[in-house]
């Protein structure tokens, strides 16, 4: 009797650990309040992020997982304003703050204050360097390398590449560019024939590409940073050039363009980006930390990839003008945490 009860208990514990984490968490974090501090709302990615967070947060509150999941956005993309916002959140007594930061360093003071007040801080996308905060970072270098790896697989003979970069002087642009440079070094059949800054916007990319195209030789492939693929394609079409292999960034208009081109001439490419739902990943990570789970400080966001096989289903699920999205669950957060535990050195290096 005693032995079987022990056995049952052990089985129950294993099951609880493997499958029912969110179930277990209900008891422990139901009184906890989580706030999202967001620094910018002026593009469709951020809009989608806020919407996904609100939906997932409302559901978590309704399910009794947490007591509150509130989103706050600063009106200007400024670190000072966001620091004040974080201080307000400490005063309001939130247990955890998840943070898309305006600056990796300027908010450290406010973040330290939060930590000292016993508030869990999880930064994501725009991360902070304060040691007491958790970071869910995007491996932008890996994203750049992966684009060139894909092109190498599709274009074994190589050729000229056009690189459409993001906003000059921004960390993300530098990292993606470094990854692409590494990729081109690894696949020496490719050569970057030209580079322009498209500022992650279709119209800016279209303008920049249209301006450089007349001076370029034949282009075999285009590496992009997301939000600029459709504008690039428009510029190539307007110039009457052969359509190169453009790696896309999951925007609806990019995916729609791909689907149309596929129906017309069998065009095939790869689309990858970070899902705006990453805010929900940060939410679940924060919830697990509040739940007492031991979580490494540095985590990595998975890429959301769209391939020829998943194009139609992704396209159908993405609202017009938005970006391909996925809502992360507590189980996804577990996987990300497990991956970070399995490969601590790789994450520590970043």
């Amino acid at each position: 009797m005693n032995r079987s009860a022990l056995l049952l208990g052990a089985v129950g514990l294993t099951m609880g650990l493997s499958g029912g984490l969110s179930g277990m968490a209900v008891a422990d974090t139901s009184g906890k309040r989580i706030a999202l501090s967001n620094n910018y709302a002026g593009n469709s990615w951020r809009q989608s992020m806020l919407q996904t967070f609100t939906e997932a947060g409302d559901k978590a509150v309704a399910d009794g997982v947490v007591a509150a999941a509130d989103a706050y956005t600063t009106s200007e993309n400024q670190a000072t304003e966001q620091a004040a916002q974080i201080q307000n959140m400490i005063l309001q007594g939130y247990d955890a703050i998840i943070l898309d930061a305006a600056s990796p360093t300027a908010l450290n003071g406010a973040v330290e204050e939060a930590c000292n007040a016993g508030v869990t801080v999880v930064s994501f996308d725009g991360i902070v360097t304060a040691p007491c905060a958790w970071r869910i970072a995007v491996d932008f270098r890996g994203m750049g390398r992966e684009q060139v790896d894909y092109l190498a697989q599709r274009l074994p003979d190589g050729g000229n590449l056009l690189e459409v970069r993001g906003l000059a002087g921004v960390f993300v642009d530098d990292e993606l560019h470094a990854g692409i440079t590494e990729g081109v070094a690894a696949h020496d059949q490719f050569k970057i024939a030209g580079a322009v800054h498209g500022d992650w916007a279709q119209d800016v990319a279209q303008k920049a590409v249209a301006g450089i195209l007349p001076s370029l030789p034949d282009i075999a492939g285009v590496v992009t940073q997301g939000g600029d693929g459709y504008g690039t394609a428009q510029a190539f079409a307007a110039a009457g050039r052969d359509m190169p292999l453009i790696v896309l960034g999951n925007r609806k208009d990019e995916l729609q363009w791909w689907a149309d081109a596929r129906d017309e001439n069998g065009y095939e490419t790869l689309s990858l980006s970070i899902a705006p739902g990453v805010a929900t990943l940060a939410f679940w990570v924060a919830q697990q930390i509040l739940d007492g789970k031991d979580v490494p400080k540095d985590l990595t966001v998975p890429f959301l990839k769209v391939t020829a096989d998943t194009l139609d289903e992704t396209l159908a699920a993405t609202p017009d003008g938005s970006v391909a999205n996925t809502v992360y669950t507590a189980e996804d957060a577990d996987k990300v945490i497990a991956a970070a535990i399995a490969a601590p050195s790789e994450n520590g290096a970043k």
């Binding site: 002026g42 593009n43 809009q47 916007a201 279709q202 119209d203 208009d253």
Partner: peptide, 12 residues
């Protein structure tokens, strides 16, 4: 011209 309005279209 560019296939739709975007929130940051005017910034430049």
């Amino acid at each position: 011209f560019s296939g739709g309005a975007a929130l940051n279209m005017g910034s430049e």
